[in-house]
């Protein structure tokens, strides 16, 4: 079931489009904002709320890699693996993160604190290597800086 809060926020988004179904991306974002990820049940609920099928919603949900269809940790780290960051030492940053967190890219730490994911370009090539944590950009990374940053997210 969508919460009243979620329903209200999605309803607001539908007002921007001539057809309800068009608000599906926003609906997915609303649900993810509140729950951290989008479950199969949530896909069904959104479909019902917007008058379309689960298959229809899932085809959109799975298309966007920033819509999470599996549970994620409390904080999501997305490290850029694009060209500029790669030139500037992305590999070392990734390996450092993997070692610090004890997970592979795509996994969540056993305490449910962090999920580590790759991302393609954060638009900050001039300050590579980069990553974002919960939407906050962190640039000019080095291993020590990464350690400091991780400390801020409990």
């Amino acid at each position: 079931m969508l919460t009243p809060e979620e329903q209200r926020e999605i309803e607001e988004e539908t007002a921007h489009f001539p057809v309800r179904r068009a608000a599906c991306i926003d609906a997915l974002r609303v649900v993810q904002k509140h729950r951290g990820w989008v479950s199969d049940d949530a896909v069904r609920d959104i479909a019902e709320f917007l008058g379309t099928s689960s298959d229809d919603i899932d085809s959109i949900a799975t298309f966007y890699n920033l819509i999470f269809r599996k549970p994620v940790g409390r904080h999501v780290i997305m490290i850029c693996d694009s060209v500029s960051c790669w030139v500037m030492g992305y590999d070392k940053m990734r390996d450092h993160l993997k070692a610090r967190l004890g997970v592979e890219v795509g996994q969540t730490t056993s305490d449910g604190r962090f999920t580590l994911l790759p991302v393609v370009c954060l638009g900050a090539c001039d300050r590579a290597p980069t990553m974002i944590v919960d939407g906050q950009l962190h640039a000019n990374l080095d291993p020590q800086k990464i350690d400091e940053i991780l400390e801020r997210y409990k």
Binding site: S53, S54, D55, S59, T62, N65
Partner: peptide
Amino acid sequence: GKDFGPQVLRNLVYFGRAE
């Protein structure tokens, strides 16, 4: 049909049902 469609993207595009 409503209960079928494309999912995911790139080289992982999948054609099937939500479940």
